[in-house]
Amino acid sequence: MDAAESPIPAILDLARDVSNAVARPAAPLSAFMAGLAAGRAGGGEAAVREAIAAVTRAAAAWPTPQS
């Protein structure tokens, strides 16, 4: 995948979602994990988008701390 095919807005959305739902320091790690998962799934834009969606779902399901 070259830079023109890279879903940069989706990756930035992932980082935002994880930062807001989990913790700010988790954003870079989550982007790395999505890339790792996409690579292991064969790479390509579809694999990247599916990995991003999976991490975003996991972040949305992250338990919120009790106050």
Score class of each variant (00 low, 15 high):
R16A: 15
R16D: 14
R16Q: 13
R16M: 13
R16I: 13
R16G: 11
D17E: 15
D17L: 14
D17N: 15
D17W: 05
D17S: 15
D17C: 11
V18F: 13
V18Q: 12
V18P: 08
V18I: 15
V18C: 09
S19R: 13
S19V: 11
N20H: 15
N20F: 15
N20D: 15
A21Q: 15
A21K: 14
A21H: 15
A21S: 13
V22R: 13
V22S: 07
V22I: 14
V22H: 12
V22T: 12
A23N: 04
A23H: 12
A23E: 07
R24W: 10
R24D: 09
R24I: 13
R24F: 11
P25G: 03
A26F: 12
A26Q: 06
A27C: 11
A27K: 08
A27Q: 11
A27W: 09
P28V: 07
P28M: 08
P28Y: 06
P28I: 02
P28Q: 03
L29Y: 05
L29S: 10
S30K: 01
S30L: 06
S30D: 10
S30V: 11
A31D: 11
A31K: 04
A31F: 09
A31E: 11
A31M: 12
F32N: 09
F32K: 02
F32Q: 08
F32P: 02
F32Y: 09
F32W: 07
M33T: 14
M33H: 07
A34H: 01
A34G: 00
A34P: 00
A34L: 00
G35C: 04
G35A: 04
G35I: 00
L36D: 10
L36R: 10
L36H: 08
L36N: 05
A37H: 03
A37Y: 05
A37W: 05
A37R: 15
A37I: 08
A37D: 15
A37C: 07
A37N: 10
A38Y: 05
A38G: 03
G39P: 05
G39A: 02
G39R: 00
G39C: 02
R40C: 06
R40A: 10
R40N: 11
A41S: 07
A41K: 00
A41N: 02
A41L: 01
G42Y: 01
G42A: 04
G42Q: 04
G42L: 00
G42N: 01
G43K: 00
G44C: 05
G44W: 06
G44L: 08
E45I: 03
E45R: 07
E45Q: 08
E45Y: 00
E45F: 00
E45S: 02
A46R: 08
A46Y: 03
A46L: 03
A46S: 08
A46Q: 10
A46K: 06
A47I: 09
V48L: 09
V48E: 06
V48K: 08
V48T: 14
V48F: 09
R49K: 12
R49L: 13
R49F: 04
R49C: 04
E50R: 09
E50N: 09
E50K: 15
E50F: 08
